[in-house]
Design a protein around this nucleic acid. Structure first.
Lengths: 208, 208
DNA sequence: GCATTAACTTAACACCGTTATTTTATTTTG
DNA sequence: CAAAATAAAATAACGGTGTTAAGTTAATGC
């Protein structure tokens, strides 16, 4: 039996140890091999101990992904400094796509897996807070561009515009994650797909 | 014990009975409640009997989805009769999206769930056969439009164009399926999202 | 009617998430 | 310093999963 944890700082350390072990399994062997028992085995504790630190498996996975998504939003904050709104939109889409492709398992868990309605409440990330939520950042910059009058005049809903841009980039990334390795598909280069999606959508949304 | 099956036609009938029971659970209660034991219980057989008809659970689900995807491709064939290639592209995108939203569980299994490379080999659908594969139909009509010179001249890869259109519609549908019920997202109307994705992409891809 | 053969069931294995109970190590108290 | 209290961790168990080996039962061919 491992030495017991009493002090709060040791408790936090074990919490991080659990998350690191889970991340390792999650990233390297996919979501399928992330079982409570296996995480516990990796760090030399019993499975039940994990339940003293996370209410259930989903909360553990959520905590795992939260940290990385805060990192995404943090990287986006640098992009938000770009002065030109349209260049900023381009950079946001690119940054978002690169993140998705570099963290396919996180991405899958967050955006490709239906959750029961309440499950989203356990995340630490404040939705709509531009400091933490990448979509909120996109929405904000689209709103700025919208106010500057760069979009076609028949487009009157900036939320709809932002959601369309998001859906476009998400479509390319999620197809790549789900079906990128299928031999029967002759996929074009992934960067070319991302680039064309971005440019075609912008051409179709911006004033001529 | 149910009466035993000997004749090939009875065998086929039981196969369909299994698939119907599985479809019922799959569509009504989601993929989570589709267990071999539960399917078997529903039709009054033991779980092991299912393994006489399908090699494993994934093969069963694959067979389940194949039938509906053949129906999709079949519906698409009517659309392929539309003379104008661009109107045909629009109708294909619309038909595809409506199918995805009407069969979210099928769609999820087919296009939102990573499969091991070999798993795709168990499908009955001939990929690339325009009679059976909806993507092949899209590719074909995009190629026709490409040959007619309707796309911008900097676009030289019709596969890339088709994949971008697919990814766009897929992005809208898969976000709707995965996150459409989240309370923290103020989604625009789903038909508006599909329509804008389609129109914006076409505007961005077609000659001015 | 009996042997054969195929269909089907039972029992089991090795997992899973989760929880009630029990053990164990530390801390506090007498 | 020893004993009691407490909190942490482990064990055992429940009900579930996909799957398989072995056993049973029903229909078929002779």
């Amino acid at each position: 039996m491992p030495p017991k944890i009493k002090s709060p700082q040791d408790r936090e350390q074990l919490r991080l140890l659990i998350l690191d072990a889970a991340r390792c399994l999650f990233v390297e062997r996919g979501i399928g091999s992330v079982s409570m028992r296996e995480i516990a085995k990796q760090i030399g504790y019993s499975a039940t101990t994990l339940y003293n630190y996370f209410t259930d498996k989903e909360a553990l996975l959520q905590a795992l992904c939260d940290a990385d998504f805060l990192a995404l939003a943090s990287g986006m904050r640098a992009i938000m400094q770009i002065p030109d709104p349209i260049a900023r939109i381009r950079a946001l889409c690119q940054g978002y796509a690169q993140f998705a492709l570099q963290h396919p398992n996180h991405y899958r868990f967050m955006f490709m897996t239906p959750k029961t309605p309440t499950n989203m409440e356990i995340t630490q990330i404040e939705q709509g807070n531009t400091e933490q939520d990448a979509y909120a950042q996109l929405q904000q910059v689209v709103q700025t561009a919208f106010d500057a009058g760069v979009f076609r005049e028949d487009l009157q809903d900036s939320e709809l515009i932002a959601q369309t841009l998001w859906a476009g980039v998400h479509g390319v990334c999620s197809l790549e994650i789900a079906l990128g390795n299928e031999v029967w598909m002759q996929w074009a280069d992934i960067q070319a797909r991302i680039g064309l999606m971005q440019e075609a959508l912008l051409r179709g949304l911006l004033k001529a």
